[in-house]
């Protein structure tokens, strides 16, 4: 919730993800909050989000090196989160590709929207260029976008992550947002998406 506008840092991340057993679990925030001190990560480098349309919780541990001790992270995640989760707690590494301050970089983000996708074989270069030259910067310039970033998963599918921190979920429906999505290049690239998941979420303050 910082209101300072600084150039955002390109940061790799380790992702912890699980399905919540009880969406109103009273210990959710307290349990998630144990991760930072246990892993010696500044609380500000942990971003936790809860999906709006499914009971999924995703935690980005930012600023970790890609050779981070995943066993220690997994141990801490299981110790603190197992009682909240149904099924496995998944741990994976995300390598940062690009990060852009949004048009509303000085505002507080309450929402997080992530598009995870794979791409049909042969479409990788066009996808990279489209994101790099048009799409990410286009969406970052939409009012209400606080931060836009791209990462790629080193461990899991879908591989490509585009993450947007937003002031409100309605940003996804504004004419400015929709206009960026509605370009010739977008229309060419989007049909090559496969295994795609679009996940609107709210940021959890932990």
């Amino acid at each position: 919730m910082s209101t300072e506008t600084t150039k955002p840092a390109l940061q790799d991340a380790v992702l912890i993800e699980f399905i919540l057993k009880d969406q109103n679990a009273p210990s959710l925030i307290g349990d998630l909050g144990r991760l930072a001190p246990e892993l010696s990560i500044p609380a500000a480098d942990i971003q936790a989000v809860q999906a709006l349309e499914e009971p999924r919780v995703t935690v980005y541990l930012r600023g970790l090196k890609l050779n981070a001790n995943l066993a220690a992270i997994g141990f801490s995640a299981h110790k603190n989160l197992a009682s909240l989760a149904v099924g496995d707690i998944e741990i994976s590494r995300l390598a940062a590709v690009k990060v852009l301050a949004g048009a509303s970089a000085n505002k507080a983000a309450d929402f997080h929207y992530v598009v995870r996708t794979d791409v049909l074989s042969g479409g990788e270069d066009d996808l990279e260029q489209w994101y790099d030259q048009e799409h990410l910067a286009g969406l970052a310039s939409v009012p209400g976008v606080v931060l836009a970033q791209r990462l790629v998963s080193l461990d899991a599918a879908p591989r490509y992550y585009a993450c947007y921190d937003l002031t409100a979920p309605q940003i996804l429906k504004t004419p400015e947002w929709l206009a960026v999505r509605d370009t010739a290049w977008s229309s060419r690239v989007r049909p090559t998406f496969c295994n795609t998941r679009r996940i609107p979420s709210r940021l959890l303050r932990i």
Partner: peptide, 21 residues
Amino acid sequence: IAAVKVSDLAAFDDLERLVLE
């Protein structure tokens, strides 16, 4: 009261958010 339990910040006004922070 429900929002504070699940950290739903959107429920709070600016002063409440500052106090929570």
